Amino acid sequence: MLWKNSEFWKNSSPKEMLDFFQQIHEGEHIRDWVEIMQKDEAFCDLIFEYLWLFRSESETRVLLNKEEFPSSLLLRFIYFGYGKQFISGNFESGNYFSQVKTMLDPLQSLKILSLSEEMDRDPTLKIHLLANLDPQTWEAYFDILEGNSFTMQALLGIFANLRENEIRKILLNSPTLYYYLRMMMVSRDQLESDKDKKSKDILQGILDSVHVWELFCLSVQEKFNLTEEKNKKPKERDSLRLSLVLHELVKVPNHERADILVYIKGNGAVIDEWEESTILSVLENHNKNGRFV
Score class of each variant (00 low, 15 high):
Asn161Gly: 12
Ile206Gly: 00
Ile127Glu: 00
Gly147Trp: 06
Ser193Lys: 11
Met1Asp: 14
Ser71His: 08
Gln153His: 06
Ile144Ala: 07
Leu280Met: 12
Cys217Gly: 10
Leu18Arg: 15
Val250Gln: 14
Lys230Tyr: 04
Ile24Lys: 09
Leu244His: 11
Ile87Lys: 15
Arg121Lys: 14
Arg61Asp: 10
Glu256Thr: 12
Tyr180Val: 00
Leu74Arg: 11
Glu164Arg: 00
Asn173Gln: 13
Leu107Ile: 14
Thr278Leu: 15
Asn65Ala: 13
Ala131Asp: 02
Val212Tyr: 08
Asp194Gln: 12
Glu92Ile: 09
Asp32Trp: 10
Asn11Thr: 15
Glu164Asp: 07
Glu166Leu: 00
Ser193Tyr: 05
Met183Arg: 13
Tyr141Lys: 01
Met152Asn: 03
Ile158Ala: 02
Ser219Ile: 12
Asp40Trp: 08
Ile144Tyr: 09
Asp208Gln: 06
Ser114Pro: 05
Ala258Phe: 10
Ile202Leu: 04
Glu57Gly: 10
Arg163Glu: 09
Ile24His: 08
Gln153Gly: 07
Cys217Met: 10
Asp272Gly: 06
Asn173Leu: 01
Leu104Cys: 08
Ile167Lys: 00
Tyr79Val: 04
Ala160Pro: 04
Cys44Phe: 06
Ile271Lys: 02
Leu283Ile: 14
Phe54Trp: 13
Asp189Tyr: 05
Ile279Leu: 11
Glu28Asp: 15
Pro70Tyr: 07
Asn95Trp: 01
Leu133Gly: 01
Ser109Cys: 08
Ala131Cys: 07
Ala258Gly: 04
Ser88Gly: 11
Thr137His: 08
Lys101Cys: 11
Pro135Leu: 06
Gly83Met: 06
Glu146Met: 10
Tyr180Ile: 01
Phe80Asp: 03
Met185Ala: 00
Leu244Thr: 09
Gln136Asn: 10
Lys198Gly: 03
Gly94Arg: 05
Pro135Tyr: 03
Asn161Val: 09
Asn165Glu: 11
Phe142Leu: 02
Pro123Val: 04
Ala131Asn: 01
Asn285Arg: 14
Leu64Gln: 01
Ser13Arg: 07
His247Ile: 14
Phe97Gln: 06
Lys169Leu: 03
Asp120Glu: 15
Leu280Ala: 14
Asp134Trp: 06
Thr102Trp: 09
Arg31Ala: 15
Glu222Ile: 02
Gly268Arg: 08
Gly205Gln: 00
Val100Cys: 08
Lys198Arg: 13
Leu107Asp: 11
Val270Gly: 11
